[in-house]
């Protein structure tokens, strides 16, 4: 918008017949004004967390700088891990790789396990939500199984698969599937009778009903489950990798502890937190895109 702001002076200069029309136009702020507005809105959201972060860092620095402190202060963390931060892509063979490779290995496991959990979870949730008998049969089982801590499954998985990789994927799967099943089932059970009546009058077959009514209607619930699930699977993979070893951010942390590289642990935790946050936002964003404008009213 290069149009200048309409001030009373501008209007006065125009012919009198055109004046009312011009006056009716909505006023538009000039470009600089709008940028200022956006900048202000951003600043309001970004500055408070930055201030809190700076204060926490300062506190940490002060507490840990004393001699004999067990944990390194932020300045030391940065100095120790500079190489890891600025070169995440090195690969010296074995598990001596850059953080990028560790994180991508972990993310890959999560991607496999979580995708399987999403597919199986939505399918099972639909079954449980749709059929009273399936619910009666399966729900008690789900309620017991979902309380088992993720890592408790790992030995059993190792015994069954005799390999770390599929066992880790299984742990992700079994951790993230429960909230997906339960939320999908609630979503399916909450499909309004009206929509079922519409489907009945139009005579949709079960497959069409599933795609055209069930999934869109239950989508907000399903995405709630998916979002909880992705958070849990990221929690589980770190713990599982500590035990199975190999390339992965979980074992990277454990390895750093064994070599007493405390700074590396702190850096890894920082990355784990950021990625967990991004995963959560990504699923939330996807849910927003898919269910946009679909809230019943």
């Amino acid at each position: 918008m290069t149009m200048p702001a309409i001030s009373p002076d501008n209007v006065k200069m125009l012919p009198t017949t055109a004046a009312p029309v011009v006056a009716m136009r909505p006023k538009r702020a000039p470009r600089a004004d709008r940028f200022l507005k956006i900048a202000r809105a951003t600043a309001v959201r970004v500055i408070p967390p930055l201030i809190v972060l700076a204060l926490l860092m300062l506190f940490w620095e002060l507490v840990c700088r004393r001699a004999g402190s067990t944990l390194p202060p932020p300045s030391k963390v940065f100095k120790d891990t500079r190489e890891l931060i600025f070169d995440p892509f090195f690969d010296h063979g074995g598990i001596d790789k850059g953080l990028f490779w560790h994180l991508s290995a972990s993310l890959q496991r999560v991607a496999y396990g979580y995708s399987l959990a999403a597919i199986a979870g939505i399918a099972l949730g639909t079954l449980v939500g749709q059929s009273v008998w399936a619910m009666r049969g399966l729900d008690p089982l789900f309620q017991v199984l979902r309380t088992i801590p993720p890592l408790a499954w790992l030995p059993l998985a190792l015994a069954a698969f005799r390999d770390g990789q599929p066992s880790a994927i299984f742990v992700i799967f079994i951790t993230s599937i429960w909230p997906i099943i339960i939320n999908t089932a609630v979503g399916i059970r909450n499909i309004p009778q009206d929509y079922r009546n519409v489907a009945a009058v139009v005579q949709l077959n079960p497959l069409e009903f599933f795609w055209k009514i069930m999934l869109p209607s239950a989508a907000p619930y399903i995405f709630t489950g998916l979002r909880i699930g992705v958070g849990l699977s990221w929690l589980a993979i770190i713990a599982a990798e500590m035990l199975i070893g190999g390339v992965g951010i979980g074992f990277f942390i454990w390895d750093a502890w064994n070599s007493s590289h405390i700074s590396e642990i702190i850096l890894a935790l920082f990355y784990v937190g950021i990625i967990g946050f991004v995963l959560d936002r990504a699923i939330a964003g996807l849910g927003y895109l898919v269910t946009h404008g679909t809230s019943a009213n």
């Binding site: 309004p192 009206d194 929509y195 009546n197 519409v198 055209k212 009514i213 869109p216 209607s217 989508a219 269910t291 404008g293 679909t294 809230s295 019943a296 009213n297």
Partner: peptide, 8 residues
């Protein structure tokens, strides 16, 4: 009565 249009 309540139109029952599919909102999506």
């Amino acid at each position: 009565q309540n139109h029952s249009l599919l909102p999506w």
